[in-house]
């Protein structure tokens, strides 16, 4: 089996220091909506300067380099145990090189492990065997500020008047955006999962964030709701950093899962503007990044 440690290290470096082009373009577009000289406009201008600087100097876009969440899709014949070891080596090396901040804290002792390695869930690695020859590794770095404002609702929700349908889903998502203000470094991106159990719903809401910003849901009903939610969230005028302004949410990514008859969960993973997600593909012995 091929050793991919240095290729994965490059994936981590790229993810931490070089914001994906679709996210940067969306931020640039957002600046146009804000009044020149306003706090919101200044915030976005500063964010974009920071993005350029990080790329140029190969330094972390944000100091909270978050939980490294890997999604590995591998063809038959690979050892997930070895892949996991390579990922862990790459993460520890990336921490030494200051691409990542030491972020893994023992919940009982409070001790920081110093190298971003913890138990079986830090870093988080999801494996899936797939057909074909290509191996892909996608990485999201998800910071604590935005992770803390993620939310899960169990419908019906009487306080919000939200029933067990997409109209109810819309209401709780808007509520979550309102509650997140000031805390998730807006403008953000919403990953929303409808259904599942509490665990699968959170996972699916994160997986939804792997889609490009301009890629709507395959389901026409969800695609329409994605658009509407982004638009309505922006009517709240919470604005960049919560300073007030036109852009609160850059995009909404929805997905749905089967659920139990008794359960109807809606899970929102809020991603901050520092939407660090990258992908590497190994095909015919060649590695490429996007």
């Amino acid at each position: 089996m091929q050793d991919l440690t240095s290729e994965i290290l490059e994936l981590v470096r790229l993810t931490s220091t070089d914001l994906p082009p679709d996210v940067e373009a969306a931020l640039r577009e957002a600046t146009q909506a804000e009044e020149p000289g306003s706090a919101a406009r200044n915030a976005l201008d500063t964010i974009l300067m920071n993005v350029e600087l990080s790329r140029r100097n190969s330094t972390p876009i944000c100091q909270d380099t978050g939980t490294p969440i890997f999604f590995v899709r591998y063809p038959e014949g690979w050892s997930t145990r070895q892949l996991r070891a390579q990922i862990e080596n790459a993460v520890a090396e990336a921490t030494r090189k200051a691409y990542l901040r030491p972020n893994a804290v023992d919940s009982l002792s409070g001790k920081n492990s110093g190298n971003n390695l913890g138990d079986d869930h830090f870093p988080t690695v999801h494996f899936e065997e797939v057909e074909g020859e290509a191996l892909t590794i996608e990485l999201i770095l998800k910071g604590g500020g935005c992770e803390n404002v993620g939310a899960q609702y169990s419908l019906p929700n009487a306080a919000l008047g939200a029933g067990r349908d997409l109209a109810g889903v819309r209401k709780v998502v808007l509520d979550a955006v309102h509650k997140a203000q000031g805390q998730g470094c807006a403008p953000g991106i919403l990953g929303v999962a409808v259904g599942g159990d509490r665990g699968t719903s959170y996972l699916a809401s994160k997986e939804a964030l792997l889609r490009r910003l301009d890629q709507p849901s395959d389901d026409p009903e969800l695609a329409e709701l994605e658009q509407r939610l982004t638009q309505e969230a922006n009517q709240l005028e919470i604005g960049p950093m919560g300073f007030g302004g036109k852009t609160t949410v850059l995009a909404t990514k929805m997905t749905s899962l089967h659920r139990l008859p008794a359960s109807f969960f809606v899970t929102i993973s809020y991603m901050c503007w520092a939407y660090r997600r990258r992908k590497m593909t190994l095909r015919n012995g060649q590695v490429s990044y996007e």
Partner: peptide
């Protein structure tokens, strides 16, 4: 005083 969240490289400079 509100700093720009996430503008980590710029502030570090």
């Amino acid at each position: 005083l509100h700093a720009i969240g996430g503008a980590a490289s710029l502030i570090a400079q």
